[in-house]
């Protein structure tokens, strides 16, 4: 860190920094109005908020909402499911596109690489309201997956109603739907790697696997660290819309997540405050986790993620 050496130097530096402040100004204004002002709504988590009474008149109840949420018999289960599903979503959501990016990078025919890239992005344009029906059919007892299992002599599996399989299906179909996104980021990162290194490796007689291990992966490391850190912030986000479209009471045991739990609680009456309490809790946890990851990256590799 640079220590200010004298007052004069400091003011000189400030002058040089003015363009930075000017650049940030418009974004800061929008951020304050549309992100920081609405955060006042967090007080809902400490109120028994009723729309009829608005913020001003809703009674304050301290930590009652947190106690209420934790006391729910289904809360622990939903919390556990959320963390497990989200964790695997992050792992596969990063590793599968990384693998694909490396494989795509090896494709020499440009048109083929482009076609694959384009099609991998396609499922992302369809909402889960539409994809849900497709996924249910594919994994139904008479669906294609069970037909394939039948060909190999296996017994049909009730995937959508199985607490053994349900999370796997959630994670798998999520990865399939959204892998195009991270794939693009990884491909963009690969373009940053100096092609000269590969040429040198070829001359040295390194095989493909070694090139990937010694050149491609290290070259992509910063972006991998970055995406992982940001993904950690999603550790309590297990994909509300997707779960809502695919689950049923029989798989609440493994598939019910915090968002769907809150959603069902709100169906009869709007439970604003418990939902706000969970949101606040989730935000705090994400902040702490990302903070730790940020600190680790800085401490051990002197790299500021943001």
């Amino acid at each position: 860190m640079s220590k200010p050496k004298s007052r004069k130097k400091k003011s000189g530096q400030f002058k040089r920094e003015i363009p930075f402040y000017l650049m940030l100004l418009p974004a800061l204004v929008i951020l304050i109005i549309y992100s920081y002002l609405p955060m006042a709504g967090i007080i809902m988590a400490f109120q028994n908020f009723r729309p009829v009474l608005s913020f001003a008149n809703s009674p304050f109840v301290g930590l009652d909402n947190f106690r209420f949420v934790i006391s729910l018999p289904t809360f622990q289960r939903a919390f556990r499911n959320t963390a497990i599903i989200a964790f695997w979503r992050i792992v596969t959501g990063l590793s599968v596109p990384l693998l694909l990016a490396i494989l795509l990078n090896e494709v020499r025919k440009k048109w083929f690489a482009r076609m694959v890239q384009t099609t991998i992005f396609l499922p992302f344009f369809l909402s889960w309201a539409v994809l849900g029906g497709v996924v249910r059919e594919v994994f139904s007892l008479g669906g294609p997956v069970n037909q394939v299992i039948g060909i190999f002599g296996g017994d049909p599996i009730m995937f959508m109603g199985s607490n053994t399989w349900f999370r796997t299906i959630l994670v798998g179909t999520h990865t399939w739907q959204s892998m195009g996104i991270n794939l693009i980021i990884f491909l963009a990162a690969i373009t940053n790697i100096d092609t000269g290194q590969y040429e040198a490796a070829d001359i040295d007689g390194c095989n493909k696997l070694k090139q990937v291990w010694h050149i491609t992966l290290p070259g992509m490391l910063p972006i991998i660290i970055l995406l992982s850190t940001l993904a950690i912030g999603q550790l309590l986000n297990a994909g509300f819309e997707q779960v809502l479209m695919l689950y049923s009471p029989i798989v609440y045991e493994t598939g019910d997540i915090l968002d769907t739990l809150i959603y069902r609680m709100g169906l009869g009456q709007q439970l604003f405050s418990p939902a706000a309490a969970i949101g606040l809790f989730r935000g705090l946890l994400s902040l702490v986790l990302v903070g730790i990851a940020y600190w680790c990256a800085y401490r051990f590799s002197d790299y500021r993620i943001f």
Binding site: P249, I250, R264, M265, L267, G268, Q269
Partner: peptide, 25 residues
């Protein structure tokens, strides 16, 4: 709707729905 219905109604609903489904199959 009573107080408990408002705060616990959906939990109770989940409970029997889940139980009935598991029981029938």
């Amino acid at each position: 709707p009573t107080e408990t219905h408002l705060s616990r109604g959906s939990i109770l609903h989940d409970m029997w729905l889940e139980f009935y489904a598991g029981y029938i199959i």
